[in-house]
Write a protein that binds this DNA or RNA. Structure first.
Lengths: 143, 143
DNA sequence: ATGGACCTTCCCATGATGGGAGGGTCAAGG
DNA sequence: CCTTGACCCTCCCATCATGGGAAGGTCCAT
C-alpha cells in the first residue's frame, strides 16, 4: 500500500503522513526499491489512531505517549487515564477562558445599539474607560 | 516616552509593539534623532486597546478593523457590532467543538479503570473499534 | 513509448509570540 | 571626560500543525 492509498484508508493527508514519519511519530515505514513508502494494516491503524486523537485535541507529544502505550500490551491503563485527564483539564480550562470571552462579548454586543450612531459600548470597553474623559464605568466587568 | 515605558504603560511587550509597528497596526511611531521610537498618550491607548481586544480573542485582522473604527468618530456602531458578533459566533463554535471533545474524553476517562491492567476504553476508542478483532462497539459515541 | 497519475525531497507560508546576537545610545556616577 | 549598565535598534530563528508548490523520478495502461 503506497502513501496515497494509506491516506484514503486512514483519512490523514499525505502531507501529514510524511510529517509524522519525519518526526518519528510513526516508525519509518519501509520503502520499495524505488524509495516509495510502504504501509501495512498496522500502520494504517496507527494513522487512524493519530487522527482520532487529534480530533480529541491531543497535542503531538501527548499522542506520542499514547501511541507508545497503545503499542505496549502490558501498559497499565492508569497511565493512559492520566494523560487523558491532564488533557481534559487543559481543555476545560481553555473552554472556561473562551467562555469568559464570549460572555463578555455577548454582554457588550447586547448593549450596543448597532445603528448609525457612533456611540458604542464595545469600543468603550476596549478603550478601557480611558482616552478622552472620565474612567467611571462600574458594572462593565473587565479583567 | 520610549518603547520600554510604553510597554509598561500599556502591558504590551516591546517585541509585540515592534511587531504591531511593522505590520502597520499602529501608525509608524515617530522617531528620535537616534532612531528610538517615541510614543504619546494616544499610542499608549491604542496599545491598550489592542491588548484588550486580544484578550477577547479578536484576531489581528479584526483588530485592524476595530482600530480604524475606533479612530473614526463618525463610525456607525452597526459596523462594530457586526465584527463583534461574527467573532462571537466563531468563539461559540469553537467552544462547542471543544466541549464535544471534553465530553467524549470525560466519558471515556470515566469508563477507564485507571489501574494496573492494560484494558483501556480510551485506547479502544482511539483505535476506532478496529485492529485485532470485531468492530462491534455501539454506545461509545464517536463522531 | 508516451502520458498522466502518482511518488520523492526541499523550500516557503501561516499567526502571534518569544529568544538571542550584534551593535548603537543615553544617563549617572566616578 | 569616561566608563558602565540599562536601554534601544534591526535581523534572524523557532514555535506548531498544516498546506502549497516546484523540480524531478516512477509506474502503469494504452
Amino acid at each position: 500500500m503506497n502513501i496515497g492509498q494509506a491516506s484514503k484508508a486512514s483519512g490523514v493527508s499525505t502531507k501529514m503522513i510524511r510529517y509524522y514519519d519525519e518526526i518519528g511519530l510513526v516508525r519509518p515505514a519501509s520503502r520499495t526499491e524505488s524509495n516509495y513508502r510502504e504501509f501495512d494494516e498496522r500502520e494504517i491503524n496507527e494513522l487512524r489512531f493519530i487522527r482520532r486523537a487529534r480530533s480529541l485535541g491531543f497535542s503531538m507529544p501527548e499522542i506520542t505517549q499514547l501511541l507508545s502505550l497503545w503499542r505496549d500490551r502490558e501498559r497499565p491503563s492508569r497511565e493512559v487515564k492520566a494523560i487523558a485527564q491532564k488533557h481534559l483539564g487543559e481543555l476545560d480550562a481553555r473552554i472556561a477562558e473562551m467562555q469568559t470571552m464570549a460572555d463578555t462579548l455577548r454582554h457588550l454586543s447586547h448593549c450596543c445599539a448597532g445603528d448609525d450612531r457612533p456611540d458604542c459600548p464595545i469600543l468603550a470597553d476596549l478603550t478601557g474607560g480611558a482616552q478622552p474623559a472620565e474612567p467611571k464605568s462600574a458594572d462593565v466587568r473587565r479583567r
